[in-house]
């Protein structure tokens, strides 16, 4: 399989529903926590080391062939907010459709059959990476990058932030993305011996609270 499949899977235009989600940025903008490129960077750094790390480890473990049902339950346990669980499953279902069309595979079909309303997105991402012939590090990079690229893109729309500044934020976070992806893969390999309890359980309480607050708004631009 081609390494370039990673570019297809990680492309922001891969049609898997992400464009309608802000990764918590809309709530953070409204609460005044994101007001500029500098505060966007702080927000993204926090999300990378919490939600991003967990998503990366889940994706890497799924790419290694760990039982998706166990990973999905582990993802639920690491996602206190019902709104975020719902968003993760919707995104997982949307990614499933794009992945099955792109890399038809029996494992994806089985996962779709088991979770018709969607498994957690990072779990689907890992199985999709596997179907594309990619490895755990590729899956971890995709998940970790998505954890910051989503909020950055959304903030460009929400604050009319200069898009070059937002892209600069992502570029400056690249070395930390490397470290998070490495840690995620290391944890995923431990899952093979120790089970899903070896997955990281880093969490950002303000992200969880913000997601519940956001889900109750009558007027909003993004689905989460």
């Amino acid at each position: 399989m081609s390494r370039a499949a990673l570019l297809v899977l990680a492309d922001g235009r891969f049609p898997a529903g992400g464009h309608a989600h802000s990764g918590g940025a809309e709530a953070a903008v409204k609460a005044g926590r994101i007001t500029s490129a500098a505060s966007l960077e702080d927000f993204c750094r926090g999300r990378l080391h919490t939600a991003g790390l967990v998503a990366g480890a889940l994706a890497a473990a799924a790419a290694l062939g760990v039982e998706p049902r166990e990973l999905d339950a582990a993802a639920d346990a690491r996602t206190p907010s019902p709104a975020l669980r719902g968003a993760a499953r919707r995104l997982g279902r949307q990614l499933m459709r794009a992945a099955r069309a792109s890399w038809p595979s029996a494992e994806l079909d089985a996962l779709a059959g088991e979770f018709p309303k969607g498994a957690h997105q990072p779990v689907v991402l890992g199985v999709a990476a596997r179907a594309a012939g990619l490895g755990p590090a590729d899956a971890a990079y995709c998940a970790a990058y998505e954890s910051v690229s989503g909020p950055a893109t959304a903030t460009v729309r929400l604050l009319s932030l200069d898009p070059f500044d937002a892209t600069g934020v992502l570029a400056r976070l690249a070395p930390e993305l490397d470290r998070v992806a490495d840690a995620a893969v290391e944890a995923a390999r431990r899952v093979l011996d120790e089970g899903v309890d070896a997955l990281p359980a880093a969490s950002g309480p303000v992200l969880e609270i913000g997601a519940e607050w956001h889900a109750a708004w009558p007027v909003r631009l993004f689905a989460s």
Partner: peptide
């Protein structure tokens, strides 16, 4: 369906939410 500030994306470029 919620469209993330880009209604044309949801009907043309990334139709997954509408298909669901």
């Amino acid at each position: 369906v919620e469209t993330g500030a880009c209604p044309h994306t949801a009907i043309r470029d990334d139709i997954s939410a509408n298909l669901e």
